[in-house]
Amino acid sequence: MDLVVCEAIKKDWENYLLKEDLPVPREYKIEGGLEHEPVKYIEKTRSYYEAQGFDRAYKWSDNSAIPWYQLSKPLSECNVTFVVTAVPDGTIPKLSRQGGSFALDEIPETFRTDELSWDKQATHTRDRESYIPMVALQQLAAAGIIGSVSARYHFVPTEYSQSNTLNSDAPAIRDACITDEVDIAILVPL
């Protein structure tokens, strides 16, 4: 599949996808373009933790095969949920947090974000809706664009252990979504 990107970054783009970090380039259709090359967070994170004296670089999830499910009904009939990494219950210690599902009508005004990695110099997280798509989804449901917003949303912790995500958190969220008859999930990592 050809990569279609704006000419200005096309050359860099090809280097970007083929660099050492990406031993198995995936095939994506690209829509739209960027004015700047995206920030290389994998590289930055590696250097940052090296500078902190960590001797083993974090291994990011790296998959060549991409699962695909084609929606079989119109958006206007779909039940939509969202999955976030911002923490709904900040009283649970970071290392003990597990993936879980929470009632939408009890959603907190503020999520805990201070222990997550984001750009605390350039921005802030005081507006919940800048990382929680609840109000936007409710408006789209009210306008009839989507069928409904699911009664529960879901939290997945940003975990050092991929095995905890793969074998515990993601399956728990999957089961909850199946119980709630969810058609679409919007995932918003902070």
Partner: peptide
């Protein structure tokens, strides 16, 4: 990883994010 799990079980997923290289990988 969660999106991949959901998608594999018949739930259509989309990620909205700002960490391009991490999500792409």
């Amino acid at each position: 990883m969660t999106a991949r799990e959901l998608e594999s079980h018949g739930i259509a997923t989309v990620i909205i994010g700002s960490g391009f290289d991490i999500v792409e990988k």
